[in-house]
Amino acid sequence: MSFLPRTLSRLLRTQSPATRATINLTRTTIRTAQTEATSSTLNTRPPPPPHHHSFQHTHTKPSPPAHKPQFQNKTQKPAVPEDPIATHPLLHSLRADQTLKETRPHLSMPQHLRPAHFVAGTLAGEKKLTSAPYMFISRRDTSPSTSESTDANTTATPQHKPHATTLFHTGTHMCGHPGFVHGGFLSVMFDEVFAHTVSQAFRSGTGMTANLNVNFRKPALPDRIYVLRAEVVKVEGRKAWVEGTMTMLADGAKGEDVMVAEARALFVEPKFAEKMVPVYRN
């Protein structure tokens, strides 16, 4: 009975039988309570970890987003803007001309060269140069050229002068002053079409701009179709002179075509032309 207080043991020896029975009952109650407490302690499991425990969500799947991405279906493709040139009557008229060769040089350009190309890459896109220009170039003449010697200098004029007609559409994000197409963009288009045209005049098929002169006649408007006509007027050795006009086509049956600019340029065939990447060779 070492676990009972000494006072309780002394009372058991000195008290009456009734008191002693009461004390024994108290002792039994204490012993039973201690035994139950010990058993309860041994059989009780630790409480579960709180909900914010780091392992609680180790394998929990994330909740699905409230809104699915617009192009989640891999088979779904973004809508391609309609080509405003594809149904134009002038395009069909040019296609009917057997003396012209249709080409879209920016689409046939090697894929890895397009991003670095100013027209095919930087200027191309929605609301800019909205589609790859349609270009119709005169077929290369295989007959021998004529030469006229008037003095010590010999000027060779090809019997068939290369010429080209190009259709392109200008979006709304190519403006200088609000509501008017930037003149720099028009100059770039002259230079681009001239380069393709003059490629027919050089043996290497490559010429570089030496001089470009543009005269602006009327304001050019955005979201319109333009036709650019170019012609090689003279070839002298490694030099070729090109002239051309740019016309804004009528918007609807009531409108009229308006010539917005004209230009002339000098191109030179570089001595290292054969080593250049053939971007402008048709």
Rank of each mutant, 00 (worst) to 15 (best):
K74A: 13
L249Y: 04
L123C: 05
G121H: 03
K77H: 09
M208D: 13
N213K: 06
T150Q: 10
S2E: 13
E36V: 09
T44W: 02
I137C: 01
Q159A: 11
T87P: 02
G207L: 00
M1A: 13
V242H: 00
K275Q: 10
K275N: 08
K77I: 08
F180T: 15
D251K: 11
H106M: 11
D97H: 06
V181F: 02
H88Y: 04
T209D: 02
H196C: 09
T38Q: 15
I23T: 06
N73C: 13
E36W: 10
L12V: 06
I30G: 12
M276H: 06
T75N: 14
S143H: 11
P69S: 10
E236R: 15
S54I: 09
M174F: 03
S16F: 10
S199Q: 02
V233F: 08
Q200H: 05
D151W: 08
S63G: 07
T206R: 11
T146Y: 09
T99Q: 04
P64I: 03
F216I: 01
H173W: 06
R238A: 12
A253I: 06
S145T: 15
D191E: 04
H112Q: 07
A220I: 03
L228P: 01
P162N: 02
F180P: 05
T170L: 07
M109N: 00
A156N: 12
V181I: 15
P47N: 12
K234C: 13
N24I: 13
K271W: 14
A21G: 14
R95V: 07
A250M: 09
Y134N: 03
H51T: 11
F71W: 04
T166E: 15
Q56E: 09
Q200W: 00
V198M: 03
N43C: 09
Q72W: 15
K239D: 05
F168G: 00
P222C: 03
P144F: 13
A96I: 08
P115T: 06
L91C: 06
V233P: 05
H169I: 02
R10M: 08
E236A: 14
T41K: 13
H196L: 15
L90I: 14
M246H: 04
A240L: 02
E192N: 11
V181R: 03
A96S: 14
H88S: 01
E192Q: 12
A164M: 02
L212S: 03
M109V: 00
T58Q: 13
